[in-house]
Design a protein around this nucleic acid. Structure first.
Length: 445
RNA sequence: GGACGGGUACCGAAGCGGCCAAACGGGAUGGACUGUAAAUCCAUUGUCUUUCGACUUCGGAGGUUCGAAUCCUCCCCCGUCCA
């Protein structure tokens, strides 16, 4: 997808010194780990994997933490494997879910898989001498697994008692919706993945989000029982924010890594809006900044929070890492213009450029001819509000701006003469939500 | 298959013949204050029109009634226990 941007990621620091375990620890990435892991990581080069389920065609910012985990591991000389769950994705992981999930069909999983695979590829180095990264698909082994073999070779190592004691299962059993046999089995499949990778690649460490702890231990247990070998697990904390809402969600939904789904501008804005209380943690989690550099920002947040230096740096680094330096520059310029004051003396081409990533709608010029287009219609037409009633409310409360003029009359009409150079309208809802309307001479929306 | 409990707006959850477009909480949106932050406060939160009003909603389909989210019948779905 953005393979051309790879250099940005790698040029920052090519190789790291020291122990990845300590690195994880100071960054606050170590939520839990199996007992001997610290020792093992200090003395051996290991192969480790993280699984990514193809529940959507793109990863989102929440996945960034584990992805960076793999990348960090690689820089410390260990071998990362990103596993995409072509097989497990067909089943559905009950971990962290309070209700049974809708099964995805095979075509969708396939589509999702391809999207995710290319995103993962951005972050890993497949040519690194000594410890090149790999991406594998568990459908390769799960797809061929026969039920009888599975029950004999894998199922025999799991007591139902053991499975019932797992948090993910326990919670669902206590809930009103229960858990299907299908999802109940998920844990065994993931455990089998670990075993398969252990056998195929000598992979002895699985990492993941803290909700994966139970599944990961199921894997290390299976490896111990089936192959009498020692495997390890490490889980990252759940990324939280101090406002108590779910990390990675904004008013406009999930923040995806796919620029088609979440524009670089919005992506940049997401990080820019990080709470003061979270920003230092996020710098540790999501950037390659060193301990010393982060300490500087910590000081800055304490002494001069208004400048938001830490947020700016976080947004800059993460946006550039995911979308590339150019996309970051554009997002920055757009943000400066939008939050900097007047749009006054910018040309249409400037505006179009700035607004490239801002949500936009195309309307035909015809709708403005004659009596003009009512602002209420304009709002619903562009999707800035869901209904005329909502548009009315917005105007009444003084939250609608067109071309930086506040609209006070809900019956106001937009005439062709209101268009900027005959082709643009800039809508703003509240303080932060911009929407561009491009007016075409012929094509209707 | 049997017994019981349950399915209400974005979510949770009241309502159990009219005073119900449906309490309350959360979330969300707008505003004030700020730093594009947090906290706090105010407003809004079915659709259309906004002044009255009209229309569509309480798992689905019918029915009783002047009138139903509330009563009846059948059906679908979920849970718990029993087989």
């Amino acid at each position: 997808m953005h393979l051309s941007y790879l250099p940005i990621i790698t040029k920052i620091r090519v190789s790291e010194q020291g122990n990845i375990f300590d690195e994880f620890q100071w960054r606050g990435l170590l939520f839990d780990a199996t007992a001997e892991l610290k020792e093992v990581l200090a003395t051996q080069r290991v192969t480790a994997y993280i699984g990514f389920d193809p529940t959507a065609s793109s990863l989102h910012v929440g996945s960034l933490l584990p992805i960076m985990g793999l990348a960090r591991l690689q820089r410390f000389g260990h071998t990362p494997i990103a596993l995409v769950g072509g097989g497990t994705g067909l089943i559905g992981d009950p971990s962290g879910k309070t209700a049974e999930r809708q099964l995805l069909n095979r075509e969708q999983v396939e589509i999702n898989l391809n999207g995710i695979r290319s995103q993962l590829a951005q972050f890993l180095d497949f040519d690194r001498a000594g410890n090149p990264a790999q991406i594998v698909n568990n459908l390769d082994w799960l797809g061929e697994l026969h039920l009888i073999d599975f029950l004999r070779d894998v199922g025999k190592y799991f007591t139902v008692n053991y499975m019932l004691s797992k948090e993910s299962v326990k919670r669902r059993i206590q809930s009103d919706d229960g858990i299907s046999y299908t999802e109940f089995t998920y844990m065994m499949l993931q455990a089998y993945d670990f075993l398969a990778l252990y056998r195929l690649n000598g992979c002895s460490l699985q990492m993941g989000g803290s909700d994966q702890w139970g599944n990961i231990l199921a894997g290390t247990d299976l490896i111990r029982k089936a192959d009498a070998a020692k495997a390890h697990g490490l889980v990252f904390p759940l990324v939280t924010n101090s406002a108590g809402t779910k990390f990675g969600k904004t008013e406009s939904g999930t923040v995806w890594l796919d620029p088609e789904r979440t524009s670089p501008y919005r992506f940049y804005q997401f990080w820019m809006n990080t709470d003061d209380r979270d920003v230092i943690d996020y710098l540790k989690y999501f950037t390659w900044l060193t301990r010393e550099e982060i300490a500087e920002f910590e000081k800055s947040v304490a002494e001069d929070p208004g400048s938001r230096a830490a947020q700016k740096e976080l947004a800059r680094l993460v946006t550039a890492m995911v979308h590339g330096e150019d996309a970051f520059e554009k997002a920055l310029v757009a943000s400066k213009v939008l939050f900097g004051g007047s749009l006054g003396n910018l040309s249409v081409s400037d505006l179009k450029d700035i607004f490239e990533d801002v949500p936009s709608t195309s309307l035909s010029r015809d709708v403005f001819e004659g009596a003009g287009l009512g602002v209420l219609n304009l709002c619903t037409e562009t999707g800035i509000t869901a209904s005329n009633g909502e548009a009315r409310r917005l105007i009444r409360q003084g939250g609608l701006f067109i071309n930086s003029d506040q609209i006070e009359d809900e019956n106001a009409v937009i005439m062709p003469s209101n268009l900027i150079e005959n082709q643009l309208l800039i809508l703003r809802k509240g303080k932060k939500n911009y929407h561009l309307v491009q007016v075409n001479s012929e094509a209707s929306s």
